[in-house]
Design a protein around this nucleic acid. Structure first.
Lengths: 184, 184
DNA sequence: TAATTCATGTAAATCGTTACATGATTAT
DNA sequence: ATAATCATGTAACGATTTACATGAATTA
């Protein structure tokens, strides 16, 4: 039933399964951690997709508030669809510009490659430190309800930045060693 | 000039900057590490994109071989475009189903969430071990030329798997602690 | 009252995937 | 001979982005 480009629908089902929200609030979620590490989407794809999910009975409008806002929640069918997608392994599909740049570093001449690596090492350090600072004030257990989401995500981000930072430093060392060995 | 969904063109420029190749060989590169961690693409998008890059003078055909195969190489303009893309920071765009699943774990009930996490912990261990085994036979310096590419990529993959594995084990512990604290 | 934020939408263009299609060369 | 691999392409459909558009409620 599902073609494979359709993860937006599952992202929406997942967010709504955590907590009912409006299209506007969903849009904000995508511009936070979710969009940063996992899946990005703008309101122009979110609103039509909510309509399709509602047509298929996977979400429903549970509340209408000020300024025409509509709160959506997952239906039992929607939760079943989400659960199936989460538990069924599928061949992973990836599209990450940042990682693409890392892979293409060896296509540049060494000086340019080093410049790119140094920038990566720097921003991963800055961003990682910021996330770590945020997590210090957080509780030591996964919060129940909606906040558990951000908790898992933040820790993922920290470890992600640390890994990329370590890799960049490793690559810089390797590249510098090669530059020393074969001088231009 | 460039709209932002256009990283395929830069992936192609990068691969061709490392080494001239045919569309068929480029397609194979995308089904290896590149497609696994950074950017996936099939031959049906690669061939038309090569045509467009050639029209714009960023790549050129340098050889035609058996079975109608055409070898492409980057032109100086193409290298300039690649360099600019590599060195100019842009807001990152991410789309990764695997990571999306990780983020949505707290949307499932704890038993399902644990099942997903355990699968993640397992496959990251298996895949990481396999890559590490491959890297043991590799030289201790970045190989010059085309092989440098795979070297950087493999090390990236190893660190990536380790990071996700560590995160999954951390999350499993946290979830189990919560399950103990608030029994159903 | 002016600016900002909240809140939703449509249309055109671009991009990507799936399905379909063809034929040459090499290995068994 | 047959199967597998090499090598390229097109067309239809689906997904995504960019640009355009509107208006209500809140804050300064």
């Amino acid at each position: 039933m599902y073609a494979s480009g359709m993860s937006l629908s599952h992202a929406l089902l997942g967010l709504l399964a955590v907590e009912p929200r409006s299209g506007y609030e969903l849009t904000k979620a995508f511009s936070a951690e979710l969009g940063r590490y996992a899946w990005q989407a703008g309101h122009t794809s979110i609103y039509p997709e909510l309509g399709k999910l509602a047509e298929r009975g996977l979400v429903e409008i549970t509340d209408e508030g000020a300024r025409g806002s509509r709160t959506y929640a997952v239906t039992p069918d929607g939760y079943a669809e989400l659960r199936d997608w989460m538990l069924t392994p599928r061949p992973p599909k990836v599209r990450n510009e940042q990682v693409l740049r890392m892979f293409l570093i060896s296509a540049l001449d060494p000086a340019d490659g080093l410049a790119v690596l140094r920038r990566i090492a720097e921003y991963t350090e800055v961003e990682g430190a910021e996330l770590r600072r945020l997590m210090q004030d957080a509780p030591s257990e996964i919060p129940a309800g909606p906040d558990g989401f951000g908790y898992l995500a933040a820790e993922y981000g920290i470890r992600q930045y640390e890994a990329v930072h370590g890799w960049a430093r490793w690559a810089i060392e390797k590249l510098e060693a090669r530059a020393d060995a074969e001088p231009a």
